[in-house]
Measured scan of single mutants.
Amino acid sequence: EAHAAIDTFTKYLDIDEDFATVLVEEGFSTLEELAYVPMKELLEIEGLDEPTVEALRERAKNALATIAQ
């Protein structure tokens, strides 16, 4: 499951495998979680700032909209 989540994140969020791995290690496994989890939870991840989190959430929401079509 972790590998599938990493693949999904790299494909749809335009991030590298290392960043995707950090997200999975922090407990995220779906685009929905990244799109809708409280921003505070993402900001608790070391190295993430508000602009990065906002961009990540926007990419996740856009990916979900694209997949739904």
Results as ranks from 00 to 15, higher is better:
L64P: 01
D49H: 05
S29L: 15
L31M: 04
E25A: 15
E17C: 08
E41K: 14
A4V: 12
F28T: 01
N62R: 15
A55W: 14
V24F: 13
I45Y: 03
R57G: 03
A65K: 11
T10Y: 04
L43A: 06
S29N: 10
A20G: 02
T52E: 06
K11G: 03
E17I: 14
Y12V: 05
E33W: 05
Y36W: 10
I45K: 04
K11R: 12
A35S: 06
A20W: 02
V22P: 00
E50C: 07
A60K: 01
Y36E: 08
A60G: 01
P51C: 08
F28C: 02
T66C: 09
A5C: 05
E33T: 07
A65P: 03
E17V: 15
V53Q: 02
I67P: 03
L23V: 01
T10R: 09
V24M: 07
G47L: 05
T30H: 05
V22C: 07
E46W: 12
F28I: 08
G27E: 01
I6F: 04
A65S: 09
Y36K: 10
T21H: 10
I6L: 06
F9H: 00
Y12C: 05
L56W: 04
M39F: 08
L42V: 05
R57D: 00
R57P: 03
L43C: 05
T21P: 00
L31W: 02
P51L: 11
E58F: 08
N62P: 00
L23N: 00
D49A: 04
I67R: 06
S29K: 13
L13I: 03
T30Y: 04
A55L: 14
R57I: 13
L13Y: 01
A60H: 01
Y36G: 08
T10K: 10
L43F: 06
A65Y: 08
I67M: 10
T66I: 14
T21S: 10
G27Q: 02
D18W: 14
L64F: 03
Y12M: 07
I6H: 04
A63W: 04
R57Q: 15
L48G: 02
E50R: 14
F28R: 01
S29W: 15
T10I: 14
V22M: 15
G47D: 05
A20R: 01
P51E: 13
S29R: 15
A2K: 14
E32C: 11
V37Y: 08
A20T: 01
A20N: 01
E54F: 07
G47Y: 06
F19V: 10
V24S: 04
T66Q: 13
E33C: 10
D7G: 11
D16Q: 07
L31D: 00
A60N: 01
Q69C: 08
L64E: 01
I6R: 09
E1C: 08
A2M: 14
A65G: 07
T8G: 04
Y12L: 07
A68P: 06
L56R: 00
I15G: 01
A4R: 12
P51W: 13
I6N: 02
E26I: 14
I6Q: 04
T66G: 08
E1D: 12
T21L: 13
Q69R: 09
L34R: 00
A68V: 08
A65T: 08
E50S: 09
D16V: 04
D14V: 06
A20H: 01
A60W: 03
L42M: 08
A35Q: 04
L43M: 10
A35C: 06
H3G: 10
L23R: 00
F28G: 00
V24C: 04
G27M: 02
A60L: 05
N62E: 11
T21N: 09
A55Q: 09
E41D: 11
E25K: 15
E44H: 14
E33H: 12
Y36P: 01
P38F: 07
L56Q: 00
E33S: 13
T10D: 00
M39E: 06
E58N: 12
S29Y: 15
D18F: 12
K11M: 09
A35V: 14
T8Y: 11
E46R: 13
I15R: 00
L23Q: 00
L13R: 00
Q69W: 02
T10E: 03
T66S: 10
V53E: 01
G47P: 03
V37C: 11
D7K: 14
E32Y: 12
E25P: 01
L48I: 10
V24N: 03
D14M: 14
L31N: 00
L48M: 13
L48D: 01
K40T: 11
L56D: 00
S29T: 15
E41Y: 14
E1W: 08
F19L: 14
A20S: 03
T52Q: 09
Y12E: 04
L64T: 02
A5S: 09
I45P: 02
E17T: 09
A35G: 03
A2D: 09
T66K: 11
Q69H: 09
I15K: 00
E17G: 07
E25W: 10
Q69K: 10
E1G: 12
A4G: 08
A55R: 14
K11E: 05
T66N: 11
H3F: 10
L43R: 06
A20I: 03
E32I: 08
L34W: 02
L64D: 00
E26S: 15
V24L: 08
T10P: 00
E50G: 12
T21K: 15
G27L: 02
A65D: 09
F19I: 09
E50W: 12
E32L: 10
A4L: 10
D14P: 02
A4I: 11
D18M: 12
R57K: 12
L23P: 00
M39G: 05
V24H: 06
E44Q: 15
T8H: 09
Y36A: 10
K61S: 06
S29A: 09
H3T: 11
H3R: 15
E46Y: 12
V37T: 13
E17Y: 13
R59K: 12
D18N: 11
I45H: 04
Y36T: 13
R59C: 05
V37L: 11
V53M: 09
